[in-house]
Design a protein around this nucleic acid. Structure first.
Ligand code: MN
Ligand code: MN
Ligand code: MN
Ligand code: MN
Lengths: 217, 217
DNA sequence: TCTATTTTTTAGTCTACCCTAAAAATATTT
DNA sequence: AAATATTTTTAGGGTAGACTAAAAAATAGA
């Protein structure tokens, strides 16, 4: 296993490769490599039994590939917690370094780091940290876009794209914060959230797809 | 710069390449790669201006190469402090993980980690951590082998080979611990140390080369 | 349905590392 | 001073991972 292969498998997972077929095109975009390189890597991973491949359609993770993806995501997210909680990174700053550290982390290191951090359940943007055995404890959450006026909820998880996290930082939307949805403008207009202290935040329509909330508040 | 190049430059430094010429043979041994690979890497580093090369004699670091070596050692040692102090690694366990982490550590990360650790001066086996600008604060120390009976000292630094550190762990010799040298057997015989609490430790002749002490105790 | 566009694959290159085996240079013995 | 041994370099290969350009296959549109 190499860093490139690991990131490739992780990308397949993040594009839904544990349940759907993922196209080469999607991987080209996600990894910023050429289409030829995707075909090449597919061939390698197929040979190692980490993916299945339907020519001209795409790839899917095997159980073996899925386990590797989950273990890498575990490492990634544990590092993100460390960078945010111990080193004071903002949540939009953690990803880049974690993306490198994840590939050079022995199990010994990760388990000790996990204990040092108090065995966290979520990463800084609310992503669930997979268990040591590669399984995932599913969390019940709803995309904000599916909420209706007067719904009450707390922010459960947000998309981890760096620019989006910066946007939320600017909007002062934080993980775990409680809101009421007080307005949704028609024709894909903005949403207005009201925090418990009365603070109002207006966010764009598309942002509401990237925020997951917990309505059992 | 790649991990292999970085480790190669670090190896040159550790073999004395900031003041002497380092032979290919020494690098073959230190890095466990073939002689041909050493020649090849020398050619690459020469082209980048990181070393000077005298054919059939060996290589030496340029100022540029020296700066890279010191910055890598800084990263390595800061990680070692983290692993030992925060994650509870024994001092013989830190090296392997630090040897990987050092290559994926941004300056941003290292400076934050350094602050988190309280800006340490020494790594877990007493090695000085180079400053941010690549300079080194020299420490006054004496090899234990040069001490004579009745000398008093404290342990300043020890060789960082994993097996040697295990040996010292077994002998209960710790950094900063104060001893009196009570006996040196002739014909390269063992040395006997006595701690302040009266505990006596007998160590082999060759071990006394790998331990540096501070006589200003 | 047939043409145009998009997507995927193939073919051919390139760089970074690594190797073994043989040749060349340097050091050491006798 | 030669012969022998050691060290370094050269020659020739190999693999992983990336690329561009061109061919092939699939999809979308008229
Ligand atoms: Mn991340
Ligand atoms: Mn990564
Ligand atoms: Mn070390
Ligand atoms: Mn290293």
């Amino acid at each position: 296993m190499t860093p490139n292969k690991e990131d490739f498998i992780k990308a397949i997972y993040e594009l839904g490769g544990h349940e759907q077929v993922v196209s080469n095109k999607a991987l080209v975009k996600a990894l910023s490599i050429s289409a030829a390189s995707v075909t090449e890597m597919n061939t390698r991973l197929l040979k190692e039994g980490l993916i299945t491949h339907l020519p001209y359609q795409g790839v899917q993770l095997t159980d073996k590939g899925l386990r590797i993806a989950n273990q890498l995501i575990r490492k990634h997210r544990i590092w993100e917690v460390f960078l945010a909680e111990k080193l004071g990174y903002d949540w939009n700053e953690v990803h880049k370094d974690a993306d490198l550290l994840e590939h050079v982390s022995s199990d010994f290191l990760i388990e000790r780091l996990n204990v040092f951090l108090g065995e966290p359940t979520f990463d800084p943007h609310g992503g669930v940290i997979p268990n040591k055995d590669g399984t995932i404890t599913e969390i019940d959450s709803t995309p904000l876009i599916e909420c209706t006026v007067d719904d009450q909820f707390k922010i459960q998880e947000v998309d981890d794209q760096e620019e989006f996290l910066e946007y939320l930082l600017y909007k002062n939307v934080q993980l775990g914060k409680k809101y009421t949805l007080v307005d949704v403008e028609p024709y894909d207009g903005p949403l207005t959230l009201e925090a418990v202290d009365g603070e109002r935040t207006i966010i764009g329509h598309k942002a509401a797809f990237k925020i997951l909330v917990d309505k059992n508040v």
